[in-house]
Design a protein around this nucleic acid. Structure first.
Length: 505
RNA sequence: GGGUUGGUAGCUCAAUGGUAGAGCAUCUUACUUUUAAUGAGAGGGUUCCGGGUUCGAGUCCCGGCCGGCCCA
């Protein structure tokens, strides 16, 4: 059995020896397949009055051990919380008690049964009768210690702080850092609330292809891959839009998808190369209906997470209860950059504006692109409370209906909160001739070297040519919404396994 | 991609260019209601990797690897 304690495996030799000893004594922890849990930790605490003296069984990780002579106190933590165990040598026998002293470690997974009682110090506990080690932890887990200082201040010693290890080894982070766990669970709650809201409003959840011959519906560079059997290049989707609209054309009047999309771009505290997008489409609805949908859905999600319609992000109070502000993009630029809409009518004038403001003019071949740039630079940081920015330029909105009476602008909005863009909506183009012209304009940009310009999608156009009802659509980033609603410093804190450069070796 | 900052014991962190330390964790031991248990003792290091400067490098220089933050 000495090979089990061998060096060089990266495993703790002391723990390997303990495992070897347990196996030799016929108590191999890894031999167990299941364990009947009758009560979780939180339930035992919550229902103590009824359970006092009753026999329960529970399972979890050992998170603290305090042996005191011939008695031992341990804490196990399960998915609901922590419960204390109490064991006496004269009751459990020498073998088991010596296991507690010599063969168990923090992080081991334990199943116990015993009766519920309260210690002299008042802590609700399980008085151990039976004890089964269900798995041995062969690497030390960095459990910290929480305690109160003399002044009553809550402190934390040790633990896991290294961000690289928290993201790379999320299993450990989840076990050790309560706040990581809570925040990630909060994200799941957000997704569930989103589904609740859409389901109860008669939207049908669908699934559309991730592998696509052509990646459209957004301005972004796709990931490329290759299908061997068809011997063809495929793209990973960058949005959900065009397939969901095909379903609208197909007579599914209210559809949505919550799905992973992939954009081959930089990474930051706001960007992960794969992220979760929610898109929803409603036939016979317009932009204003989408605003109502977003307001209602955001409030519903906030209530599900926080129990109220306001919350704080990085110290700023954000209130979703009042009707969301509406601000045309050009009006925002006038207010925040001091640039009049008339100065943004031709490329020449718009370039002059950039020069006046000390901004570079190269790589800005369209007035629409310049308007969006000015908006991002001057208006966006001011948008703390929820705000709909409306009337985006047609040049940067190849899938949105034009404004009646002003073909340079579109029936489109973006929703902003806490200075971040959280979603994008249009009254969708349903005129296939208009749509073909927009794609053609994008193709010109693409030919000019803009890798993010929208490709000509003949298959989608053909579908639209059969007739598409007037439709409102909204798409929003789930991760970004989670960042803001859970007050996270980085997108990596709301994604279970964020992308990191692979470890070598 | 650029700037900046970091990588030291299992974890959290120290260490003027001069013997690599502490707390928690670990091991031994005492202790029959503890809870940051406590007392006594012990072990634990490729200072991210590779070069260079120096009598001497965790520390300074160059290159690389992997992160954080800011910017594009």
């Amino acid at each position: 059995m000495t090979d089990l304690a061998a060096e060089g495996s990266g495993l703790d030799p002391v723990r390997r020896q303990k495992l070897a000893d347990l196996r030799e004594a016929g108590r191999d922890p890894f031999a167990h397949e299941r364990f009947e849990v009758t009560h979780h930790a939180a339930k035992i605490v919550a229902e103590f009055e009824a359970l006092d003296g009753q026999t329960v069984s529970a399972a979890g990780r050992i998170t603290s051990v305090r042996v005191q002579g011939k008695v031992a106190f341990l804490d196990i933590t399960d998915t609901t919380g922590r419960i204390q165990l109490y064991a006496r040598r004269d009751e459990v026998g020498d073998d088991l008690f010596d296991d507690i002293k010599h063969h168990t470690d923090l992080g081991d997974i334990l199943g116990v049964s015993g009766f519920v009682f309260r210690t002299q110090r008042g802590e609700i506990s399980i008085h151990v009768r039976e004890w089964t080690l269900l798995a041995k932890s062969l690497r030390p887990l960095p459990f910290g210690k929480e305690y109160e200082t003399d002044s009553g201040e809550e402190k934390h010693a040790g633990g896991l702080k290294d961000p690289e290890m928290r993201y790379r080894q999320r299993s450990v982070d989840l076990l050790v850092n309560r706040d990581s766990r809570e925040r990630l669970l909060g994200r799941m709650k957000i997704v569930r609330a989103m589904r609740d809201y859409l389901d109860t409003h008669d939207y049908l959840e669908v699934e559309t292809p991730v592998l696509q011959a052509m990646a459209g519906g957004a301005a972004a560079r796709p990931f490329l891959t290759h299908h061997n059997a068809l011997d063809t290049e495929l793209h990973l989707r960058i949005s959900l839009e065009l397939y969901l609209k095909r379903l609208i054309i197909g007579g599914l009047d209210r559809v949505y998808e919550i799905g992973r999309v992939f954009r081959n771009e930089g990474m930051s505290t706001r960007h992960n190369p794969e992220f979760t997008l929610m898109e929803v489409y409603a036939a016979y609805a317009n932009l204003d209906d989408m605003m109502a949908l977003v307001e209602g859905m955001f409030r519903h999600i906030c209530r599900a997470l926080h129990g109220q319609e306001n919350f704080s992000f990085q110290g700023q109070e954000i209130d979703l209860a009042p009707s969301f502000t509406r601000l045309p993009i050009l009006e925002g630029i006038r207010l925040n950059a001091g640039v009049a809409p008339e100065e943004l009518t031709t490329l020449e004038l718009a370039h002059a504006v950039l020069t006046r403001l000390g901004l570079p003019t190269e790589n800005e071949p369209t007035v629409g692109g310049i308007i969006e740039k000015l908006h991002e630079k001057f208006t966006q940081p001011t948008l703390i409370q929820p705000t709909f920015i409306t009337e985006f330029p047609a040049e940067t909105s190849p899938l949105a209906k034009k404004m009646p009476g002003n073909p340079a602008l579109t029936r489109r909005f973006e929703i902003y909160m806490a200075g971040a863009e959280l979603g994008n909506a249009f009254s969708e183009i349903n005129d296939p001739i208009d749509q073909r012209e927009r794609f053609a304009a994008q193709s010109d940009l693409r030919a000019g070297g803009d890798a993010e310009a929208h490709p000509m999608d003949e298959d989608f156009l053909r579908a639209m040519e059969y007739g598409m009802p007037p439709t409102g659509g909204f798409g929003g980033g789930v991760d970004r919404l989670a960042i803001i609603l859970t007050d996270a410093p980085s997108i990596r804190d709301v994604i279970l396994f964020p992308l990191l450069r692979p470890e070598r070796g």
